[in-house]
Design a protein around this nucleic acid. Structure first.
Lengths: 129, 129
DNA sequence: CTGAATCCCTGCCGATACTG
DNA sequence: CAGTATCGGCAGGGATTCAG
């Protein structure tokens, strides 16, 4: 099934993905979650949302991030069509990374998560259905 | 650091969380991601967004989900103030689960993820910064 | 009915060292 | 500079079993 009714407390529109019963790529939310999953992934995306960066610049921005994980994240995001790799000729060799337009569309998603994280600090209100 | 600039391609507003360099609870996006992380979590939330459910109803809706994981998810979401537990007297013993208002605020987040997952199917467009 | 406890296994993440 | 190779530790998740 899928998370289609999200945002509609009582009533829910019909959606072909609305009956997913297992966490598979069939559910759009799971797809997005799969992209975002993995430690450091969102931090890398944040950096790239601020503009394209060279590998060394990313390393500099995220000092605690090892080569292996950074490479893994970038390779995975490239494979997913989120990030684009640009190997530039010359010396020293440099590789530039930038978000594809598909990747840039993740902006609103991260923004929504940001907003919830900020206001979520207060857990004062409660309600039941 | 944090993902504050999310959604603002070139320019980025100043934010105290904007300089997080390690994935810690200091970043709102990481907070939200932590809440959503874990297999099955979003599926459980989807079910609850459609209205409060009894434990048995959740099990029925997610047949492939084991008791342990469902219990873990619910307990964790309760601890986070996302879900509220309502132990009802009588026989057979039944426990009702519902989202708190804080939990319901996750609706827009999942909606954004849903939207991206749906349109993300096409990776035709690309661009560089 | 509703969970908590236990066991095992898998995959991720980090550190280190090495190559084009 | 920009990665890849390898190894080990550890936490997450599934199945099964037991308890309130």
């Amino acid at each position: 099934m899928a998370h289609q009714t999200v945002g509609y407390p009582p009533g829910l529109p019909d959606d072909p993905h609305a009956h997913v019963e297992v966490p598979t790529p069939a559910c759009p939310v799971e797809i997005t979650l799969a992209v975002l999953q993995g430690r450091w992934t969102t931090l890398v995306l944040r950096e790239l949302l601020r503009g394209g960066r060279a590998y060394s610049e990313l390393r500099q921005a995220l000092p605690k991030l090892s080569d292996k994980v950074l490479s893994d994240r970038l390779a995975r995001l490239c494979a997913l069509g989120i990030v684009e790799r640009d190997r530039r000729a010359g010396w020293p060799p440099q590789v530039h990374y930038a978000l594809t337009t598909r990747g840039q569309r993740l902006g609103p998603v991260l923004q929504a998560m940001w907003d919830w994280g900020v206001q979520g600090a207060d857990r004062s209100t409660e309600s039941r259905s």
